[in-house]
């Protein structure tokens, strides 16, 4: 019993890790939007890149959070379609 106690007392780091993972999953949901803008930008870019060549800077994502409403502004500057399609084929 005392040996068991001794061993379980020492390895407290796994407990800390698990508690943090559970807590932060919850807190991120509440405070939220951690890196949301960056994630959206990456994913939108990836979807467009499937069909045409596009530069990273041409996709701008902006999140404005107000008290009652929030707006998500997505600004995509399209390249010359014929050129982009040709570039994507190569």
């Amino acid at each position: 019993m005392s040996l068991l106690n001794f061993l379980s007392r020492r390895r407290s780091a796994p407990v800390a890790r698990e508690r943090l993972q559970i807590l932060l999953a919850h807190e991120r949901a509440v405070h939220g939007h951690r890196d949301l803008v960056a994630i959206l930008q990456e994913e939108i870019l990836a979807v467009i890149a499937k069909h045409m060549a596009i530069e990273r800077e041409k996709v701008q994502v902006k999140l404005d959070r107000g008290k009652s409403t929030s707006t998500l502004e997505i600004d995509i500057e399209m390249p010359d379609l014929a050129q982009a399609a040709a570039a994507a084929r190569h």
Binding site: L20, L23, L24, E27, R28, H31, H33, R34, D35, L36, V37, A38, L63
Partner: peptide, 14 residues
């Protein structure tokens, strides 16, 4: 400290 850092990272991204 890890919890507070997580919060600060959220602020850096917003």
């Amino acid at each position: 400290s890890v919890r507070d850092s997580d919060r600060i990272i959220g602020l850096l991204d917003s």
